[in-house]
């Protein structure tokens, strides 16, 4: 009988079966991790996490007919002027045309300083005056931003109103002649 003998080729011993070498199934993850962290870094830097908040400001309509109200008494009003270089000037319960206005006008900085003044004035005026018919506190703040002040000053002072829980405040952008005289060049816009 004829026999076919497979020989040569150098592979296999004995039975000559070809066995595939067992390969590891493990994949090297390092480049993948690298890529992952690279993308994380990118997204972390590109994301703006803090969402802006908004502050509502209601102004009276221009063409609305003003209800007849009695004019504000200076003794119930804290007038705040926003001047140049973030300065605040204030008149606590006194009108600008008063003789004592010059000496009584105080200055303050934003932050706790003006907050204390508002609180002090609020307690004083509210304790000295009765509530009005609608049950509102008599205390009123008149905010007068001048051309020298910045938008930031205005937002900050409105924020102080929210902090001190002052319900009645008015934003008035015109100075009366006596106020102009009192403040002088402190409120004039100048190129710095």
């Amino acid at each position: 009988m004829a026999e076919i003998v497979e020989s040569g080729g150098g592979h296999g011993k004995g039975d000559g079966k070809v066995r595939a070498k067992k390969m590891s199934t493990r994949v090297d993850m390092t480049p993948m991790v690298d890529l992952g962290f690279l993308l994380i870094t990118f997204f972390m830097l590109a994301t703006t996490m803090t969402k802006p908040t908004s502050m509502t400001l209601n102004v009276p309509a221009k063409d609305k007919i003003e209800e007849k109200t009695e004019p504000l008494k200076a003794s119930k009003v804290l007038t705040i002027f926003l001047g140049r270089n973030n300065d605040i000037y204030y008149l606590d319960g006194i009108a600008a045309d008063d003789d004592k206005a010059k000496t009584d006008m105080g200055t303050a900085r934003f932050g706790s300083e003006i907050r204390d003044i508002v609180f002090k004035s609020k307690t004083r005026i509210n304790s000295q005056n009765p509530k009005d018919e609608q049950g509102n506190d008599p205390f009123v703040v008149v905010i007068k931003p001048t051309p020298a002040s910045t938008y930031r000053n205005m937002v900050d002072i409105l924020d102080e109103m929210a902090i001190t829980k002052t319900k009645r405040y008015a934003l008035v952008d015109e100075l009366t002649p006596s106020e102009k005289e009192l403040l002088g060049d402190k409120v004039e816009a100048k190129d710095q």
Partner: peptide, 11 residues
């Protein structure tokens, strides 16, 4: 006749 504004601020 827009009399109500939102002022965008940071928190």
């Amino acid at each position: 006749n827009i009399n109500k504004f939102n002022l965008i601020t940071g928190s």
